[in-house]
């Protein structure tokens, strides 16, 4: 598996476990929107808050203060993983 796919899978697992979703990690599609009415998972801002904390702790970085930017970061699994890759310290 290429390295970025490993991360994809890891983060998908984390989303499913942190939010206690009934879906499985392989059903979290890389490009599908994570949040809102159109999102397959129908996640909301409180989910984003819980995920951000968990991801920040796991990968050793802080999300930004700019919420507009965070909307982009949480747009999809793919976008989220790209952001983790760029900022992780562990």
């Amino acid at each position: 598996m290429p390295p970025h796919h490993v991360l994809d899978r890891e983060v998908a697992d984390l989303i499913v476990s942190v939010l206690n979703l009934e879906t499985t990690a392989d059903r979290v599609l890389a490009d599908a929107p994570l949040f809102g009415e159109e999102g397959d998972l129908g996640l909301d801002s409180i989910d984003a808050l819980e995920l951000a904390l968990e991801i920040g702790e796991r990968y050793g970085f802080e999300f930004e203060a700019d919420d507009d930017r965070n909307t982009e970061i949480f747009a999809s699994l793919c976008a989220l993983c790209r952001h983790i890759e760029e900022n992780r310290t562990k």
Binding site: E64, A65, D67, N70
Partner: peptide, 13 residues
Amino acid sequence: VGRPLLPPAVAAA
């Protein structure tokens, strides 16, 4: 005017 969500956003606001 904003509605900050993540902790750093609340701090910045």
